[in-house]
Design a protein around this nucleic acid. Structure first.
Lengths: 193, 193
DNA sequence: CAGTAGTGAGAACGATCGTTCTCACGGAAG
DNA sequence: CTTCCGTGAGAACGATCGTTCTCACTACTG
């Protein structure tokens, strides 16, 4: 039987996934060894491999976990800006600006991961494209609610603007691309209403 | 003195840079070993290290070389579409569609490289951001020539649309993002003229 | 109490990497 | 011819990786 103290403790899974997120996001998949994850998560090598039988499986678990956490953060941040009176579609860029401005910003973990093609298999690719599809579907919901009658390509175009701004903000280390993307989105939704 | 036959032969530098481009672009930097580049370029290990004293230096040379070659290809492809009557700004997306549709398409080499942060140092980062700056400057020239009086953020927004479409086309393995980006650009330039 | 199943700590294994070194050879210089 | 410098071919080196294995220890079971 597990004691109450044990139940209150952070689970090894959570500890490993948190360590994986910190290290994989900051340095990339190939640059992080399983030993580093073991040290950062403070579990034994044996337990690490009992939880995730290979690095590829761990990467898949990390991507799925990050998808859930990122989408939760993003939708909450958008809600917060909408609550303060910002147009729902434009609020996506204000939410992204919070993220891009944080010192640990390193671009999109999913885009970065798919660029490391040798570390990525088809199951990873599916998680990554599903993540982007879900992001676009969420934005499509915002567009339809706030600007009904918009052209059918607007959600996809918003997705392109969002990912382009995320990528270029990482390259230039500036929010300039985000500002330009927001201006373009303002123009695009302004044409309708 | 070098013989005529030698002069006509492909130089070892060219052979190495071509091999680096094939392998680094297809599989990523970390996944390609110096031995593979030696084999693919058909030079000796000794000559490879005489030309480029470390992998980091070779990566920098590859990025600079790819910048020149890609920009040359891109501007020529845009010119070709303009010649057939397409608006110069929209022609950028038609040029990109040729690239994205090719079977060996793997996204933008510069975006992919910066995602492999462990393999990349500040000199590489400078080459990458300079590449994107030059791309945006080129597009800014097209915008100014074809649509004078456009809003000042339009070139940056075009850059965001281009990189977003390049990235998402690689993730989804489709030209859908490119079509949406082109539609958005059409709308943006249509508002002015 | 003895026996046992499961765990933590980390050494060990086999592969691969970037880089350097060895050594035999070929052709210009004397 | 002999000498010698520069090269090609690839073995060697030391480090690091993902993964597995060893072994001492703990905490139940009977």
């Amino acid at each position: 039987m597990r004691s109450v103290a044990e139940i209150d403790t952070i689970s090894p899974e959570r500890s490993v996934l948190d360590a994986a997120d910190r290290l994989f996001y900051e340095r990339g998949i190939a640059a992080v060894s399983m030993s580093e994850i073991r040290d950062s998560a403070d579990v034994s090598m044996r337990r690490l491999y009992m939880l995730y039988p290979s690095k590829r499986v761990l990467v898949a678990a990390w991507l799925s976990d990050r998808h859930l956490r990122w989408m939760t953060w993003f939708t909450e941040a958008v809600d917060r800006h909408v609550w303060h009176g910002t147009d729902a579609v434009l609020a996506t860029f204000d939410a992204l600006e919070e993220w891009v401005s944080s010192p640990e910003y390193r671009g999109c973990a999913f885009i970065n991961s798919i660029a490391e093609s040798a570390e990525i298999d088809d199951s990873h690719r599916a998680i990554i494209s599903d993540h982007k599809r879900e992001l676009i579907a969420y934005v499509a919901g915002l567009v339809e609610a706030a600007h009904p009658g918009s052209p059918p390509w607007l959600p996809d175009a918003m997705g392109v603007l969002i990912d382009g701004a995320i990528v270029q903000s990482a390259i230039f280390n500036t929010t300039t691309p985000l500002v330009a993307a927001r201006a373009a989105a303002t123009s695009l939704i302004g044409q309708v209403q």
